[in-house]
Lab assay of single mutants.
Amino acid sequence: MTTFKLIINGKTLKGEITIEAVDAAEAEKIFKQYANDNGIDGEWTYDDATKTDTVTE
């Protein structure tokens, strides 16, 4: 398992969460579901060097 981080730069929700996932694709799926569940819809970027997804509304 690898640690992945999501940075949220939303209009109403800001912060970050960290998860353990098998790979980047699994982490992205989990993060996008989390964002959807919390009403966050924005531009996504991924930095492989830091294993960090960022969503900005």
Rank of each mutant, 00 (worst) to 15 (best):
D47C: 14
D23Y: 07
N38F: 13
G39K: 05
K14S: 08
L6D: 01
T45V: 10
E26A: 12
N36L: 15
E57N: 06
N36D: 10
T45E: 10
F31M: 06
E28Y: 14
K11V: 13
A49K: 10
G39L: 05
K32S: 04
T3F: 13
T3Y: 12
I17R: 00
N36R: 15
D47M: 10
T56Y: 07
F4T: 02
E16K: 07
G15H: 13
I17S: 00
I8S: 00
D47E: 09
D48M: 10
V22P: 08
D23F: 09
D37Q: 09
F4E: 01
T2N: 07
D53A: 15
T56N: 07
I40G: 01
E26V: 05
K14W: 13
I30E: 01
A24F: 14
K29L: 09
D48F: 12
I7R: 03
I30N: 01
T50C: 14
E20H: 11
I17M: 07
T54Q: 06
F31W: 07
I8H: 00
Y46M: 06
A21Q: 04
I19R: 01
K5N: 02
K51E: 03
D23T: 10
A24C: 13
E26M: 11
I7C: 13
V22F: 11
M1A: 04
Y46R: 09
T18P: 00
L13C: 15
E26K: 02
T52D: 04
V55D: 05
I40K: 01
K32L: 08
E16A: 07
T12Q: 08
A21F: 12
K29G: 04
E43P: 04
G15P: 09
T45F: 11
G42D: 04
M1T: 11
N38H: 14
D47R: 05
G39E: 04
K29C: 13
G15Q: 13
M1R: 12
T12H: 13
D37E: 12
G15T: 14
D53M: 15
T2P: 08
V22Y: 12
A25W: 10
K51C: 14
I30V: 08
T50R: 05
K5M: 08
K32W: 09
K11M: 12
L6C: 14
I8C: 11
I7S: 02
N9M: 11
A25M: 10
T3E: 06
A25N: 09
M1H: 07
Y34N: 00
T52G: 04
T50P: 03
G10W: 14
A24T: 03
E57W: 09
F4V: 03
T52I: 08
G10T: 14
N9H: 08
A21T: 03
N36A: 14
A35W: 08
L6I: 08
T56S: 06
A27W: 05
K5G: 01
G42W: 11
Q33H: 05
D53W: 15
N36H: 14
A49W: 09
D23M: 04
E26P: 00
A35F: 07
I30D: 00
E26F: 05
F4S: 01
M1G: 05
T3S: 06
E16P: 02
I7Y: 07
T3C: 15
A35I: 12
Y46Q: 01
M1Q: 06
W44F: 04
I17W: 12
E16F: 14
T50E: 03
V55R: 05
E43I: 13
T2E: 04
G15R: 13
F31I: 03
A25I: 10
A27K: 03
K14R: 11
N38C: 15
A25R: 11
A25K: 10
W44A: 01
T2H: 12
A25T: 09
E20V: 15
V55L: 11
A49R: 09
T18F: 12
T54W: 08
G39T: 03
K14H: 08
I17P: 00
V55G: 07
D48V: 12
L6H: 01
E20S: 10
G10P: 01
I7D: 00
V55Y: 07
A21E: 02
E28M: 15
E43N: 09
G42C: 14
D41L: 12
D48T: 10
A35N: 02
I30M: 07
Y34T: 00
D48R: 09
D53L: 15
K5V: 10
T2K: 12
L6P: 00
V22D: 02
K29D: 02
T52S: 05
D23C: 12
D47K: 05
D53R: 15
D53H: 15
D23E: 02
D41P: 03
Q33D: 03
G10F: 14
I8W: 14
A21G: 03
E28K: 14
A24M: 10
T50S: 10
E26Q: 11
Y34S: 00
N36S: 13
N9W: 13
A49G: 08
K5C: 15
K32M: 08
T3W: 14
E28A: 13
I17V: 07
E20F: 14
I17N: 00
A24K: 13
V55E: 05
T18G: 01
E28T: 10
I17D: 00
T52K: 04
M1F: 10
I19N: 00
D23Q: 03
E28L: 15
I40V: 07
K51W: 08
K11Q: 10
D37A: 12
T12Y: 14
N38G: 03
I8L: 07
T3G: 01
G10Q: 03
K51T: 04
A35M: 13
K11W: 13
K32R: 14
A24H: 15
T54D: 03
K5T: 12
E43G: 04
E16N: 05
N38V: 11
K32A: 08
F31V: 01
V55P: 06
A27H: 00
I17Q: 00
F31E: 00
A24W: 15
T54K: 08
E57V: 12
E20Q: 13
N38A: 11
A21N: 03
D53C: 15
E20M: 14
T54P: 04
T54E: 05
D41F: 14
A35T: 08
L13W: 15
N9Q: 08
E43D: 10
E20G: 03
